[in-house]
Write a protein that binds this DNA or RNA. Structure first.
Lengths: 156, 156
DNA sequence: TCCATTTCTTAATATACATTAATGCATAGG
DNA sequence: CCTATGCATTAATGTATATTAAGAAATGGA
């Protein structure tokens, strides 16, 4: 637990980093964001005073998010220790699922969402009607059906 | 902590309910979802074996989500006690923000997202450039600008 | 078994949003 | 103070997805 001063535009963490920290914002403003394959930024969250900004990658996984400062800020930096309780660990795991879902909803096309869904829930895909999958993805059943048939045509 | 058998199509929880429970799925399949003003369902998550399904409303707030069973299931129902630690409480709060964000991204138009953002971050709106707000909302700066000017024309 | 209902697909049309481009304004830094 | 850069807006065009509608296949309940 270390108090640090951060200058505007300073980058605290990059995607791919291991051992990401958690940042409690005392004053100023942080943000976390991803950069997609096309180089486009997608802001995951803003962190004004009183908020906590962190990547919910597990301890052993690389981060998905960049974190930087939009204003000069004072933040408390804390290690995401391995010593947290099992209850908390479960929460972190579920936060990560949500984090990925948000990023996906902000940036992915219908077919990309579908492929993400299949990899997240491999054994659910065959157990629910497709219109429910569409509802989960945030698209209409018709759009999902069309996207899937298009994928088949264009190889694979 | 109570083990219950749930029949397919049985509804475990409705939006508006107070004191929502958390459900650990031993076998079968649950889902949680919202219903928007137009009556359209938006599935928030599926809960196959091993997953936990719950609404992240605080204890004193009404739930946002319906929870029902897509297959005959066996679930452990646990009270979301007030006796959780402060650390966990913070997590629940942040889960709720994410939950609302996911629902919003699945169902809301650009201008609805903007209004949601302003109410979530009232004191951030004026501190960040609008193109960053757009990035947070998952729309382009141009689309946000157009949506806002359109709202002005059509009364307020 | 049969019928009603649900589910999936396809197609025509509509629409919200993305993309691209140009312009004017504000701002920060030398 | 001047200039380069970032920012917001507007407009023209393109595209992915929504909407609406219809029909065929699958499913479940009586």
């Amino acid at each position: 637990m270390k108090k640090i001063n951060v200058k505007k535009k300073e980058i605290l963490q990059r995607a791919g980093d291991l051992r990401g920290k958690a940042y409690f914002v005392e004053s100023g403003l942080l943000r976390s964001y991803t950069i997609d394959e096309k180089g486009k930024e997608h802001i995951f969250m803003f962190g004004p005073e009183g908020w906590i900004v962190a990547d919910y990658a597990s301890l052993d996984e690389p981060c998905d998010l960049y974190i930087d400062a939009l204003e000069d800020s004072v933040v408390l930096q804390t290690e995401k220790d391995g010593e947290i309780e099992p209850d908390l660990k479960k929460f972190v795991k579920r936060m990560r699922v949500l984090q990925k879902r948000v990023i996906m909803l902000m940036s992915a096309s219908a077919i990309e969402r579908y492929e993400f869904f299949v990899s997240t829930y491999p054994n659910v895909t065959q157990r629910v009607p497709q219109h429910m999958v569409a509802s989960y993805l945030g698209v209409t059943p018709e759009a999902l059906s069309a996207a899937k048939s298009q994928r088949l045509k264009s190889g694979k």
